[in-house]
Computed example of a mutant assay.
Amino acid sequence: MVKEITCNQTRVVTTHRVMSADLNEHETMFGGKLLAMVDAEASLAAVRLARGTVVTASMDHVQFTRPFVLGDAAELQAFVTGIGKRSIEVFAKVIVEEMATGKRTLGFSCFMTYVAIDEAANFTDYRLIGEDDEQAFLMETYQNRREHRRTERENLAAVNAHVNLDK
């Protein structure tokens, strides 16, 4: 029996106010802080599909497109865009809102891949349904990103075979 799930059923939306503790020496939000926030929140979208524990497998197509400054709001939105046997792809975007003006711009986006730790997990009978143009496009292009990740894993394995652990 096919289990249908919409992207919106997995959607996570959180808002973070950029505070001085979030800033780097350039007076913009530290990238590592943003990456940690994205991973923590986007994993919830994957768990909404898996209904079990998942681990982060990869973060790719990472784009910092606008800096976040003191007083901005960082609105993170994440939802599932692709499903493998045990893997779940989540698209995450962070919208910068200038609180003084209300102007909103895309500040960051990426794709996260999570894997269910339960080896018996199997999502092949799930059917993901997009509900708007953004979701439909991201779902349509999922297989291309999945193939790209497979190729990248193979390339990384070749690199890792030459990494010296003694130096």
Rank of each mutant, 00 (worst) to 15 (best):
G84R: 07
V163G: 00
N8R: 15
A21V: 12
E131H: 12
V69H: 08
D132M: 07
A40C: 08
H16M: 12
V90Y: 01
L49S: 06
H162A: 13
D133G: 10
T113L: 03
E131Q: 15
Q9H: 09
R86P: 04
A161H: 04
R150T: 11
E119M: 08
H162C: 14
A121L: 05
K85G: 08
G102T: 10
R145F: 07
E119T: 12
L44A: 12
A50T: 02
V69A: 13
K93R: 13
E4K: 15
M139I: 15
R146M: 11
D39I: 03
Y114G: 02
R51M: 08
A45Y: 06
D60S: 05
Q9A: 04
E25V: 13
Q143K: 09
R153K: 12
F137P: 00
K167F: 00
M37R: 11
I83D: 01
G31H: 05
G31K: 00
V18M: 12
E75H: 05
R153I: 04
A40M: 13
K3S: 09
G84V: 02
K3P: 06
A92Q: 06
T81Q: 03
T53P: 07
N8I: 08
V96K: 15
G107N: 04
V159C: 05
T10A: 02
N160R: 15
L23R: 13
V69D: 08
T28Y: 05
N144E: 15
M29S: 09
E97V: 11
V159S: 03
A73E: 15
M59I: 03
T113A: 06
G32N: 09
I5L: 08
R149F: 02
F79A: 09
Y126R: 02
T53N: 10
R48V: 01
A45R: 04
R86C: 07
M59R: 01
F30E: 09
A40T: 14
E131F: 09
T65P: 13
F64C: 07
D118K: 06
G52H: 00
R17A: 14
R104E: 13
A158S: 11
K3L: 14
R11M: 14
K85N: 09
L35R: 00
T53R: 12
G84D: 08
A158C: 10
I83H: 00
